[in-house]
Amino acid sequence: MISKRIQKMVPSVTLAQSEKIAMLKKQGIEVIGFNIGEPDFNTPENIIKKAEEAYRLGYTKYTPAAGMLDLREEICRKFKKDYNLDYTVRDVIVSSGAKQSLTNALMAIVDPEDEVIVPTPCWISYIEMIKLTGGVPVLVEMNEANGFDLALDRIESKITSRTKAVLINSPNNPTGAVYKEKDVKRLGELAVKHNFYIISDEVYEKLVYSGETNCCTAALSQEIKEKTITINGVSKSYAMTGWRIGFAVGPTHVIKAMSDYQGHTTTSPNSPAQYASIEALRNSEEFVQAMKKEFDKRRKYTVKRLNEMEGIDCFEPNGAFYVMPNIKHFYGKKYRDFTINCPADMCDYLLEEARIAVVDGTAFLAPHNIRISYSNSLENIQRGMDRMEEALKNLK
């Protein structure tokens, strides 16, 4: 028998789509992918060389459960340099990806029936992670009309005596929204007042455009810092998704609990990848800026093309590498055997008729949107937008 907790878990809705894409490609049909949630750039050469060096130097053994001491020291330096925050190695844990850091944090602080407030749209794994702890996800819809900014009044109305945390993600997947400092600060003040944690997922922190900057929640005040668990990693900023190195910083007692839990699950992250991540944090800013500049060009082009398409409405986000066009104008419209009644229908239609892969927004609690990742070459984005525009014109 399968456990009840797994039976209640909702599988990733993108798996069926991925299978369809794989079948088309096996038939030799080209599909332009706008569904990928990772940079299309390769990991910088200096980082790769450090991994090779790690193997030669014998960094192939277990590390402490919380991660390699040198890497944790480098993470402390990063937060001091970027945000003038003081952490010690006892306040840092390195995990097998930011996803594990998030799971560790929730397992460390959430008891059955505790509530975790999550602004939506959100990354769907948040909800399943909370459910797996026995906690209760409390979903609070943000307003598309104002760019999915934090709606503090809505969040505050959901705070109860059972609220253990609010989980935020800025820059945001899937919307690309970058939360305003004044809103994050107000949320931090609520955390202090009502004694709950903020789990702040900042894994896209380097990918912010139009002169905006990432608001690091823990940097807003000492009181807010004491209530904040910051999640980050090297995956998005340094094109290292497959290296599986994430990290968290936060109150010492919480990090210790996370480390204790990790010690009984995965023990410690990949040793050579940890060694290479020191190089990523220390000597890769030039790469980050070049990648960010290219993403910015793609972002502007993608939003411009989408808003030129009749029936599409898409706000211009200032972070990550996603946009979320609203497609409800097309509900009830048809072409051949297709009728569009929801985002899933639109995803199937665009895959079959335009040979482009986009993601159903309902996977992220966005019931009238699709998610498009511009983590693809500008040439492919141009071709994909041409195909999409032509396919949409056929819907009557």
Rank of each mutant, 00 (worst) to 15 (best):
R355C: 04
T133W: 12
L350K: 04
I117C: 07
R72V: 07
S18N: 13
G211E: 11
V178K: 05
D149N: 14
L378F: 12
Q222V: 09
F287E: 04
E45V: 15
K292M: 02
F41L: 15
L139W: 05
V323Q: 14
F330K: 03
S101E: 04
Y62F: 15
D296S: 15
Y349E: 10
N173A: 10
M385Y: 05
I229D: 06
R72A: 00
Y62D: 14
A54E: 10
K8N: 11
L365A: 14
A66T: 03
Y197G: 06
S221T: 12
H368D: 14
S3Q: 09
H368L: 09
K193I: 07
V234N: 00
F148I: 04
D70K: 15
A366N: 01
I245P: 02
A357M: 10
T175H: 07
S210E: 09
H253I: 10
N172F: 00
N326Q: 10
E181Q: 11
I255H: 05
H253Q: 11
S161W: 13
K158N: 13
T267Q: 08
E202P: 00
D40S: 15
N146I: 11
Y83E: 06
H329T: 10
S259K: 04
A366E: 02
F321K: 00
N143H: 13
I6C: 00
F364L: 01
S210C: 10
H329N: 09
L71I: 08
D260H: 15
